[in-house]
Structures are given as C-alpha cells and as structure tokens.
Design a protein around this nucleic acid. Structure first.
Lengths: 330, 330
DNA sequence: AACAATTGCGCAAACGTTTGCACAATTGTT
DNA sequence: AACAATTGTGCAAACGTTTGCGCAATTGTT
C-alpha cells in the first residue's frame, strides 16, 4: 500500500522500475484513488467553496467561470452556493461549506447581509477566505474589488463632458461597499466640475428593474430638468430607460444614460447602453489565486491583502451625444 | 464514540436521557461532524455533480437554481462544472466529479459532444445519472427534457395564425435533440397548415448572436419574400432582429419573430421578443428529484425514465400583428 | 421464580488513503 | 574490510466517522 501510494505520487525514494510497474498496473486495473480517503487522511479536501448572491446575470456567472478555470488548474473542486440575496441563506451556505470541509471560501455578500457575526466561525476554524466584489471593508480580511469609485467617477465625468448638467443617480443600498463607492464617484465627479449635488436627483433602491422604473418616475417628478442618469447597475437603468422612452424623451439628446456592470443586454437595447465593465473573469481569477496562496502558505503566514481592479468605461449610444465616432469596443 | 454517533443520528436504541446529554455537550463544544469521515465510512459523499454547457444566460442559471434548492433540502451538496460547450472539457468535468466521489451526476451535453463513449465509465461505476435538456436519446438513461417539438410547433402555428406564410428558421446543430426537435416542430406546423418546407428558408448554425446576423443576411438574400423567423434560440434571434431593423423592415408587420428560451433580454429589446419558455427551475427540480430517487433506491432497482415538460409560449410584440390584446404574461 | 424479550451501551473493525519509522539492500568512503 | 550514507520497500498507525456484534440491565411472560 505505502509503496503504491508513494509510487503514484512520484515519491523520490521509489525506484523508477517499481514506479513503472505500479503505474502500468494502475492503468490496467483502471485504478481511481478515493479522494475522500485521501482528504480525510491529509486533512484537506481539495475543494473550494463559493458563495454568490446569484448566478443569473453576467457578472457573477463570469466571475464563477474565472474561479473555476484557475481552481481546476490547481486541482481543486469548486462548490457554488447562491444566497439569493438573502442573509439567512448566505449563513446557511457558509455552514454547509464548512461542514463539507472545504479548504477555503470565496464570498460575495448578499444585499441583505448586515450582520457579519457568523463569519467569526470561519476565523475560529482558521479556514482561509477571500471576499470579492461585495466585501466587508476591513484591513483584516483579504478581498478583491473593482475600483467602483473610479468607475462611477469616470462614467459621470463622461456624461458631463457630453454636456449634461443635471445628472441623476439611481443608487443601491448604501451599506454595500460597491453602491456606496459608485455613489461617491458620482458625487465627486459633480464636485470636480463644480456642479451641485442635488438630493432631488438621487434615488436609492434595491436596483431591480421595477425599482429603476419607479425611481425614474420619482426623479422626473421632482426634478424635470434632469438631462442624464447614472445608475448603480444596468437592470435599474433599463427600467429607467423604459420610463424615459414612454415619456417621449430622446436618448441621449434629452437624457443621456450610463450604467454599471456591462450586462449582456446592454448591447441589445435601443439605444445600446453605456456601462462600466467590471473585469469579471479577472476578478474571479485573482480572488481564487489569493485564496490558493492563503491555503498553501497557511492563513496565519500571509497577511490579508486588498486588491483593487481598475474599471473600464464602455461608451455606447445611450450617452454619446457628440458626433465623435465611438472608439471603445462594445 | 458509537453511542455518541448513534445519539446524534437519533438512533432508537439510545435512551432519551443520554441523547439529551450528548446533544447538549455537542452544542457546548460546538461539535461539527466531519462529513469526509462519514462519507468515507458510509460510501456516500452526499454530493451531487452537475455539468452544464455554461451558466451565463438565463436557462442554465435557473436550472441550477432549481437543482440547488431541492438538493440542499435533501442534505446534498452540489458541485457545478461548466463544459463551455467543449466535449473534451465535458469529459474532464465528469472525471473530476467521479474522482470527487459524487453520489450522482446531472448532465446536459455540450454543443460539440458527438462521442458518448466516455459515459460508459459512469455506468461501469454504477453512479446514478440523469440527463436534462440536452440528452442522449435512449430508453436506457433517465432524462428530463422540454417538449421542444411542441414548443416549435406552437410558436410556428402562432406565426402562421398571425398571417405569416413564408416562415424562415434559424436552426441549431442537428445532432442535439433540442435543435432537431424544434426544427421538426417547425416543419410539422408548416405541413399542418399546408405550407411548403422551403430549404431556402432554413439556415443552420451554432446560434451565437453573430450566427444569427449572418444567417439572417443569408436568408434575406436567398428568400426575400420571408415574412417571419422562428429561431432555435433567442440569441440568434436578436442577431437576426438587428439585421432586419437595419434593412428598414418593420417588426412584426413585415417580419414577425419568435424565439426559444425566454431569455431575460427578451423583454428589454424593442420590440419585445416572443419566445418559448422552458420551465427552467422545474426542469432542475425534476431532474434532481429523479436523481435522488435513483440514489436512494439504487440505480439497478428503479428503471430509467424520461420526463417531458410542456413548454409555454410567451407571445410578445415581435409576433403580435393583430390588434388583439396580449393575454399571456410577459 | 425461571426464562425470554427488549432496551441501552460500548468494543473494535472498517472505509482507503498517507506517512513516520524501521529495516534491508545497495553504494560510497576511508 | 569495516563502517557510513544512501536508496528502496513495507509495517502499522492515523484521519473521524459508522455499524455489527456482544454483553449487561431492565422489563415482560409463563
């Protein structure tokens, strides 16, 4: 048994001759090692756990793809759980993963998670963990995020440069880092150009499509002079667009639009929607690489890091007023 | 040890008193059973494997959601793999899952899978398995599929009833059951109404958005009289729509459109796209239920079954010529 | 009161690997 | 030629559960 095990793992103390014999026989018998037994003995399951709010929609689907690619290359299995934006479900997911003895956890917070207490259990068990996108902001934990602030800033600067002066914002829950930062980018861009930050031009919601419709109705009612909308995500922006069109307003001439996430449908609407691309796959790859590092070095060895990816503004018809030809790729 | 184990699993031969004591102590010590050890001993990992072509796009994302819901309820973990429509990757995924000692496998074939030989290994190991959506058609295997034939048939009947007489088809790879059946539904609907099946009105491809554009160009060139398109999926249909609009043709007056899958973006385009809904979550739930049955009863006990779900035609603007108000929900 | 049946508990083996250690055989060093 | 170092192999314990079986204590039956 021991010799076999060592031969298969290419141990240096086994002669080439016996290795050959073992390999050959293993092939003949179609021997498949039992990962469970190995996991039990070695105390590592070679499995990674991922918790995402949902996988419909481009963003998380692509992040997951990036995660799977790298994880599989490194010989790790991946277990994916959806919290469905529900804090209780998220906690259950984490418990499930811990019970499944995963070697590490990748997590993006649900919309409704306010209490992070349950994460203590992960610390207590010394399970490596990396947040991505929607993170608890702390120097104590590893995380990879987009520079959402920069994304919001650039998008709004672009709108201003297109001549817009009354730019509205459809914002998300402010306890989420991403929404807060995008909003801050919006605010700072306005300030940079000497424009006022008008509360009547800002509407917060959970950013579903119906929230976008409703928010837009509201904004148009209280600030009819608005000439652009920057939305914290694309789904809400589509809702807003529907309302704008129904009112007979032209896009981008009367109201210019810019969103966030570069969803698949952004190029399918009319006009096509300007949006901030989030480098989804890269985010997934980076997160899992950091996690693997933590796993291999031991979570106590390597200090927590926060990686920030730079966003990429994709300018499309919904915000392009000037006759300048569009240079950015769709 | 034994008493503890039995107490925790509520064994009948353990007195209520000791059960109480064990439970209490377990809680105090924050005892978490090691699933790996249990799995090794019991010979079942309580993990299910899922292989899908991809998870971006509404369909598979929702199927996966259905799968996770039921599987978690039944105490099973779920490992999801994407084949990225690649046969080699699909085979690797299956090997990974087998090595991870999953108790059962749910599989939807990739676009490029022609050779099913590697599936023999699953049979040989007696691992329960259920196909869904894209299946190998055989009475020997369990599967849950949509009645794609019926979906195609209904969609095309609807187009005909709207007054269309020259209905084109954007078809997918004919080795895939779903594409073949949708095409057959198209053909039979034409025949039922006494319309000819004109090869010049049919174009096959891999159904990406650019395939839809290209296919549409081609169809318009060889059959300018066409007055409707039924596409095997919605992505290709969007591509076709773009071409149609660019030519200045009106939808649905000049060309009516119907697709398949009820993607998220169907309600976001202009006009909104008529499409066949696939009961995604239900498909996932049914598939996993069948799999659990196979796992619990033993794969040799219960005979393979094929479940067929009925499609649901969602009529939207892209095909609605008459002034009749739309009754179907979007 | 003698025996059978039931109830409650614990020993020890088993699941299939990995790995520390001991030992034998070979090779190298003086 | 004696000893040390190296190389190759195998024994047996360990990982943390589950479970067959045996034994003791209790309860039920005649």
């Amino acid at each position: 048994m021991s010799t076999v095990s060592r031969a298969l793992s290419d141990h240096s103390r086994i002669s080439d001759a016996t290795k050959k014999r073992v390999w050959e026989l293993a092939r003949q018998l179609n021997y498949q090692p039992n990962q469970l037994a190995a996991a039990l003995r070695k105390g590592r399951s070679n499995t990674l756990g991922v918790v995402v709010p949902h996988i419909d929609g481009q963003f998380f689907a692509l992040v997951v793809k990036g995660i799977e690619t790298i994880a599989n290359q490194a010989g790790f299995n991946v277990m994916i759980c959806q919290s469905n934006e529900d804090a209780a479900q998220e906690q259950k997911n984490v418990e499930t993963l811990l019970n499944a003895q995963v070697d590490g956890i990748l997590l993006s917070l649900s919309l409704s998670t306010h209490d992070f207490g349950y994460l203590e259990e992960i610390r207590r068990r010394d399970i490596p963990m990396v947040f991505f996108d929607r993170v608890v902001e702390s120097k104590e934990v590893s995380a990879v995020v987009l520079n959402d602030y920069q994304g919001g800033y650039e998008a709004v600067c672009h709108l201003i440069e297109q001549g817009c002066r009354h730019i509205a914002h459809l914002g998300g829950p402010q306890h989420l880092n991403i929404c807060r930062n995008r909003y801050q980018g919006y605010a700072d861009a306005l300030q940079h150009y000497g424009l006022p930050l008008d509360p009547a031009l800002v509407s917060f919601s959970d950013l579903r499509i119906q929230d976008g419709r409703q928010g837009m109705e509201c904004l148009l009612a209280q600030a009819p002079q608005l000439d652009a909308v920057f939305s914290c995500n694309d789904l809400a922006l589509v809702g807003a667009m529907q309302v704008i069109k129904r009112r007979g307003l032209r896009i981008p001439q009367d109201v210019a639009l810019a969103g966030f996430s570069n969803e698949l449908f952004d190029s399918l609407t009319e006009p096509m929607l300007t949006s901030v691309d989030q480098r989804c796959e890269e985010m997934g790859r980076t997160a899992v690489q950091m996690l693997l590092e933590l796993i291999n070095e031991g979570p106590t060895k390597v200090a927590p890091r926060q990686v920030v990816l730079q966003p990429n503004l994709l300018i499309r018809e919904s915000s392009l007023r000037s006759s300048v030809l569009q240079e950015t790729k769709v």
